[in-house]
């Protein structure tokens, strides 16, 4: 196996990205985290995180609950602030507040565990809100594109409904369309299937796999190993606020190097 794969805790951004499992061509670094630290009170939830995600890369973040993986994902569009270190997207360091931050967020798509569709707006209005109010598109142009996106994720026939009338799987696919409508440079997925009934998980994963195949840069916090195997270039395993191990998915799932990863995988694989 690839020798450049780092083991415990090393800052490894430079070495690993050259070893993708798929034949996908990776571009320049798009999301870069350097020495990122964050505390929740006494809890050191992110500890000296170094991570680089290249353009076109699909990164899966995996780890036990409380390991900091969701916080890491949310820090990338500053829904969580960090104590020190730097996070940059496409060469620009995350602004602290105001218009510049809003502009950056518009270029980073986010899909939440609990969907978070705007409850008082129809499916179509959920998707067109950002393009119209942030990008200044006309209603007609925004709606035409929204319908294309909704069709792509298979929920175009639900466009006139309110979010509460949709199943969880449909809501999450609308949420993906809503994020895509902003033409993001990178998409963040924070446990996108964890709140779904089992029979709805695949419809969402299928939409995500399709997105990965189109070349979208994705950072996905998930425990769905099927997705990781099918679509990811790299798996990052986190525990106690640290990146413990990173490796191509096949290598990580079949021959994890660290004790923590072996222990974690044995717990989620036994059933």
């Amino acid at each position: 196996m690839d020798q450049s794969t780092p083991t415990t805790g090393q800052p490894a951004a430079d070495e690993t990205v050259d070893a993708p499992t798929s034949d996908r061509v990776l571009g320049a670094p798009l999301v870069e985290l350097k020495n990122v630290n964050k505390h929740f009170g006494a809890l050191h939830v992110l500890q000296d995180i170094d991570l680089t995600v290249r353009k076109g890369e699909v990164l899966v973040v995996i780890g036990p609950s409380g390991s900091g993986k969701s916080t890491l994902c949310r820090a990338i569009n500053r829904l969580e602030t960090i104590d020190d270190g730097t996070i940059s997207v496409d060469g620009k360091t995350l602004p602290e507040e105001g218009k510049a931050l809003a502009q950056l967020r518009a270029e980073v798509g986010m899909v939440f565990q609990s969907f978070n569709l705007f409850a008082h707006k129809t499916v179509l209005d959920n998707v067109t809100l950002g393009p119209r109010k942030v990008r200044g598109l006309s209603k007609k142009a925004a709606e035409a594109e929204a319908m294309t996106l909704l069709d792509r994720v298979g929920v175009a026939n639900q466009a006139g409904k309110m979010p509460a009338q949709l199943s969880g799987g449909q809501q999450q696919r609308v949420a993906i369309a809503r994020a895509l409508a902003m033409h993001p440079k990178v998409m963040l997925f924070d446990e996108p299937t964890s709140a779904l009934d089992p029979e709805m998980i695949n419809e969402v994963l299928d939409a995500m796999v399709a997105l990965a195949q189109e070349g979208m840069t994705m950072i996905v916090v998930t425990h769905e190993m099927g997705f990781a195997r099918k679509a990811a270039n790299r798996v990052v395993f986190m525990a106690d606020g640290q990146i413990v191990e990173e490796a191509p998915p096949e290598e990580f799932f079949t021959a994890p190097k660290s004790e923590r990863a072996r222990d974690f995988l044995s717990k989620i694989l036994t059933h």
Binding site: L79, A102, S114, N116, V134, R178
Partner: peptide, 14 residues
């Protein structure tokens, strides 16, 4: 729910 505000910020609304 706080998720509504987060989703609004995430699509770039100030």
């Amino acid at each position: 729910p706080v998720g509504q505000a987060e989703a609004a910020r995430a699509i770039g609304l100030s």
